[in-house]
Amino acid sequence: MRTVEDPRPEIADRTARLLAWATASMAPAGVAAADIADRLAASSEGGKAFRGRLLLAAFDGCGGSDREAALELAAALELFQTAALLHDDVLDGSDTRRGRPAAHKVFEAQHRDAGWHGDAAAYGRAGAILAGDVALVAAQRGATLAARRVGDVVADLFDEMAALVTAGQHLDMRVAVSPVDALPGLERDIRTIMRSKTASYTAEFPLALGAAAAGASAATVSSLREAGLPLGAAFQLRDDVLGLTGTPERTGKPVGDDLREGKRTLLVWHAVTAGDDAQRAAVLGVLGRADASADEIRAAIDAITASGALAAVEEQIAREAARARDALGAALPDASSVLALVDAAVDRSA
């Protein structure tokens, strides 16, 4: 099995090539192309390339030989992630990403500083959406280049992933504006969001794409998709925990942003179902309130912890990670690199 100590430089190189292709394609649009290219270059920096690395680990674990195809797919995944983040920040109204102003805020500031006509905030949102669209085009380009080398199955998987994640994002929006007191269906909806929006492109499809690029059997690809679901769930649950217990320096976003945005997470669900009246009131009092103060957010976080929600989610992370490890060990001839990434995803502090 071929292994690379840290494939991130290779992934970054292929990502830069795809962005260069997009920049050249946009060149006739002049300054508008430069605006978008600048935002894409900045937005694609600073990540851990977890998805691309997971794809390559699955590729290596299945004994793949055409590493160029696998690297194209890894870069395509990272650009898909860039597009998702650009769009998510607009949909969620998030002002920061990875410790820097979100793309829509940069476009907004450009409009305001130049003294242009119209609504600066609307211009910023539109610019970020269009930049995300170009990132998607570049991601699809990478998947197409890989498919030319290893077959159409990787393109089919990539397209399926893109459609599912988009629908998952819409479900996330629907649930976020639904009454939180609709408790009987809330847990189901939260788990459906985790499966369709996060688990799909964080683990399920990266694993499947890596195996398909290696020429693995349909049965192996299917087994890895199944193994990716608990891994993706553990990844999302860890993100939810870090959103409450992490620091802005580590997570790149203000503590409690998920609460202000009204995100329905299992932490929230546990707190409003298992907490006492005071704990429930503290959580519901900030949920979806963009103007919630730091003290109110801290009180809500303390209530979530005191309700037992944090401990319950930590237990679930451990269970999901164990399921993923068992399934991956059974599906891959050599699962060592993939299992190392499982540990990194579950145990991360940012």
Rank of each mutant, 00 (worst) to 15 (best):
residue 218 A to T: 13
residue 220 T to M: 12
residue 194 M to L: 10
residue 210 G to H: 00
residue 181 D to M: 15
residue 213 A to W: 00
residue 201 Y to T: 04
residue 203 A to C: 15
residue 224 L to K: 04
residue 208 A to Q: 14
residue 158 F to C: 06
residue 204 E to W: 00
residue 192 T to N: 12
residue 218 A to L: 12
residue 204 E to F: 02
residue 227 A to N: 05
residue 225 R to I: 03
residue 157 L to D: 03
residue 184 P to A: 10
residue 215 G to I: 11
residue 166 T to W: 04
residue 163 A to F: 15
residue 171 L to P: 04
residue 207 L to V: 06
residue 211 A to L: 05
residue 193 I to R: 02
residue 200 S to V: 13
residue 212 A to H: 02
residue 192 T to I: 10
residue 198 T to S: 08
residue 201 Y to C: 02
residue 221 V to F: 01
residue 210 G to R: 01
residue 211 A to Q: 03
residue 174 R to D: 14
residue 202 T to V: 12
residue 187 E to C: 07
residue 169 Q to W: 00
residue 181 D to R: 11
residue 164 L to N: 12
residue 175 V to C: 07
residue 211 A to V: 05
residue 215 G to W: 02
residue 180 V to F: 09
residue 177 V to Q: 14
residue 165 V to L: 04
residue 223 S to H: 06
residue 209 L to Y: 05
residue 181 D to I: 11
residue 177 V to M: 14
residue 164 L to D: 11
residue 183 L to F: 08
residue 191 R to Y: 11
residue 187 E to R: 15
residue 225 R to M: 08
residue 157 L to P: 00
residue 208 A to G: 09
residue 194 M to E: 08
residue 216 A to H: 01
residue 172 D to K: 00
residue 163 A to C: 13
residue 163 A to Y: 09
residue 174 R to M: 12
residue 226 E to Q: 13
residue 172 D to V: 03
residue 221 V to R: 00
residue 184 P to H: 10
residue 167 A to N: 09
residue 188 R to E: 14
residue 210 G to N: 08
residue 224 L to T: 03
residue 184 P to G: 07
residue 181 D to W: 08
residue 165 V to Y: 01
residue 210 G to A: 10
residue 219 A to H: 12
residue 211 A to F: 06
residue 204 E to R: 15
residue 169 Q to A: 02
residue 197 K to M: 02
residue 193 I to Q: 00
residue 207 L to M: 09
residue 208 A to Y: 04
residue 191 R to M: 11
residue 197 K to D: 02
residue 182 A to Y: 09
residue 208 A to E: 10
residue 178 S to I: 06
residue 172 D to T: 05
residue 195 R to K: 09
residue 164 L to I: 15
residue 199 A to C: 10
residue 163 A to V: 14
residue 159 D to R: 15
residue 194 M to V: 11
residue 164 L to P: 06
residue 204 E to V: 13
residue 165 V to S: 01
residue 176 A to I: 05
residue 163 A to L: 14
residue 227 A to I: 03
residue 207 L to S: 03
residue 217 S to W: 07
residue 186 L to S: 04
residue 188 R to G: 10
residue 183 L to E: 11
residue 187 E to N: 13
residue 178 S to C: 12
residue 158 F to P: 00
residue 222 S to H: 11
residue 202 T to K: 04
residue 227 A to V: 07
residue 206 P to S: 10
residue 182 A to N: 14
residue 188 R to A: 14
residue 224 L to C: 10
residue 177 V to D: 15
residue 186 L to W: 03
residue 191 R to F: 11
residue 226 E to C: 09
residue 221 V to S: 04
residue 171 L to Q: 15
residue 157 L to H: 04
residue 200 S to G: 08
residue 160 E to W: 13
residue 218 A to H: 12
residue 158 F to Q: 02
residue 209 L to A: 06
residue 173 M to T: 15
residue 187 E to M: 08
residue 158 F to E: 00
residue 217 S to I: 09
residue 215 G to D: 03
residue 193 I to S: 02
residue 213 A to S: 10
residue 171 L to E: 12
residue 160 E to F: 09
residue 210 G to E: 06
residue 189 D to G: 08
residue 172 D to P: 07
residue 167 A to S: 15
residue 197 K to Q: 05
residue 167 A to V: 13
residue 160 E to L: 13
residue 160 E to S: 12
residue 206 P to V: 06
residue 214 A to C: 07
